[in-house]
Nucleic acid binder design. Structure first.
Length: 500
RNA sequence: GGGCCAGUAACUCAGUGGUAGAGUAUCGCCCUUUUAAGGCGAGAGUCGAAGGUUCGAAUCCUUCCUGGCUCACCA
């Protein structure tokens, strides 16, 4: 290709030269006796004993000079400078070294010493190519001044960072930290639940009927069965079948899929942890959420008073538990229980709240979203939701219009949703049939009746507390990230060139 | 979906109607303790895309694409 990028062209030429010189630019085996971190941890003994080390890594900086050169190589544990001299490794090997570019993987055998400027380095005695990069990495330079790291030409284009996450991880170290934290959070959730006698299960992602949340699904096709299948929007109905089957504590770390808009808190595929505990109710689950998240905060952030955005969020237990209608009274100034339907509709009109369905539950939900959500910075369990918008939750004994449900808000983020699960099959059938009716009336997010699930419940289901926690948003909270894309390795993006 | 902003070399950016620029990176030469290495020299662009206005467009206009922020929507 004659119009090939000159940078790539130059690197391919070097590749050719390496082959001519008899060097293998892509050997199958790499020798490593020490990770870079270990060198910094054992410097004195390595220097005293003149220990010979085999170190591998990627070239991250390169200062080639006539007959001696410096570079930094980086492995997963850190970065170290290499000093490489022609007269030490021989003319042939030095020529091979000169074919190196930023981004190449190399092996160095040598001993540890301090340079004139007192930087711990490896004095190379042997050098081997491990892999040639033929595409140039974006150039980021750094300088240490007064102990502070100054970056020049930082790889900063958000679009490129999301599309080429491998470069983002390589060039912006704090990104790697976010994903290490994410891994740690999920691991801690598992440990927390395992210690309480939960077992981890897996349920279908491909479902003949979808349910367990109000959302639009992705649809796919099974060729041999010649039928449509849905990617799950929630795991709820399958996990409840397991409770019916006699498991008393189950959880699943699950990818769910919702065919809806994307914004700073929504990605079409996202990760939840759903858990169900027989003989528990929503109060027990509130305790569990408090314990789990404060434990994680202590471990991950080293404190339960964590910074988020402009706030300091205090996760000290107990967290406030406030009825939804009380919060609406507090922030919207309207007393739902003592207002007529006409008054509520007038209130909505006055505040330009549009309603596609005009039932009490929806109205409450809309007013809540408009006036309350953003104010819930400190941890708040919002409890007792309207029945119409909670078809899988058990009614409150003292007020059947409300259900035993909570959502947990922290930092203005809705992090999770929990019910005392409805286990009365007659009531459940009515609610699902009512949903199906709403669906026929045009509510695209209402589900169809899942007869198989209802049949399972008819065999008997114990009282159960169930919870779904949005892991992506929890990671946002604990890493002080403000866009869900920053906590998902490969967030959904439109193709770069897109035609209608 | 609405509003605002952005898209120029591999990266970071300048360039508001008159021959496409800088630093880094790259290539060549020099350089045996450098570290944003240095010195001298060189090459590198579909200025997001398509139309339009103009003698002349990176620049003005229209439409579109992509992204960011924000509002709305979304359990």
């Amino acid at each position: 290709m004659d119009n090939e990028n000159q940078l790539i062209h130059a690197r391919k030429e070097k590749l050719g030269r390496l082959l001519e010189m008899g060097a293998n630019p892509f050997p199958t085996k790499a020798e490593r006796t020490h990770k870079i971190r270990e060198i910094f941890d054992n410097t004195e003994s390595f220097i005293d004993n003149k220990t010979t080390l085999d170190v591998v890594g990627r070239i991250r900086s390169l200062r080639k000079m006539g007959k001696a050169s410096f570079c930094h190589i980086e492995d997963e544990t850190g970065k170290i400078q290499i000093y490489i001299k022609r007269d030490d490794i021989g003319q042939e090997k030095y020529k091979i070294f000169k074919q190196c570019d930023l981004g190449d993987f190399v092996h160095v055998k040598g001993f540890v010493f301090y340079t004139q400027t007192n930087e711990l380095s490896i004095h190379a005695e042997e050098f081997t190519f491990l892999a040639k990069a033929i595409r140039p990495l974006p150039v980021v330079k750094e300088k240490i001044e007064d102990g502070k790291k100054i970056l020049y030409d930082q790889f900063a284009d958000k679009e490129l960072r999301y599309r080429k996450r491998y470069l983002d991880l390589l060039l912006n170290p704090e990104v790697k930290e976010i994903f290490k934290t994410r891994s740690k959070i999920i691991k801690m959730m598992r440990e927390f639940l395992d210690a309480r006698g939960y077992i981890e299960v897996e349920t279908p992602i491909l479902q003949p009927l979808y349910g367990g949340a109000a959302a639009q699904p992705f649809v796919t096709q099974h060729n041999k069965l010649d039928m449509e299948l849905y990617l799950r929007i929630a795991d709820e109905l399958y996990l409840k079948r397991l409770i019916i089957g006699g498991f008393e504590k189950v959880y699943e770390v699950c990818k769910d899929f919702r065919n809806e808009g994307m914004d700073r808190t929504h990605n079409p595929e996202f990760t939840q942890i759903e858990l169900y505990e027989a003989y528990a109710d929503y109060n027990d689950i509130m305790d569990l959420v408090e314990d789990m998240l404060t434990g994680i905060a202590q471990e991950v952030c080293d404190t339960v008073k964590i910074p988020y955005d402009a706030h300091t969020i205090d996760l000290t237990k107990p967290w406030q538990r406030k009825p939804m209608l009380e919060l609406i009274k507090e922030y919207a100034g309207i007393d739902i229980e003592n207002s007529s339907m006409e008054e509520l509709l007038a209130f909505c009109k006055e505040h330009e709240i549009e309603l596609d369905v005009k039932n009490l539950g929806k109205i409450i939900d809309e007013i809540f979203k408009r006036f309350v959500e953003d104010n819930l910075i400190q941890p708040t369990f919002v409890i007792d939701y309207p029945k119409e918008i909670s078809p899988l939750a058990k009614s409150k004994p003292e007020n059947p219009q409300l259900v035993e449900r909570f959502e947990i808000f922290i930092g203005g983020l809705e992090l999770g949703n929990c019910f005392s699960e409805l286990n009365d099959p007659i009531d459940q059938r009515e609610r699902l049939e009512n949903q199906a009716k709403q669906r026929e009336l045009g509510d695209v997010e209402a589900n169809e009746v899942d007869e198989d699930f209802l049949e399972a419940m008819e065999y008997g289901m114990p009282p159960t507390g169930g919870l779904g926690l949005g892991i992506d948003r929890i990671v946002m909270l604990f890493t002080n990230s403000h866009n869900i894309k920053d906590v998902i390795l490969f967030p959904q993006m439109r193709p770069e060139s897109h035609q209608d």
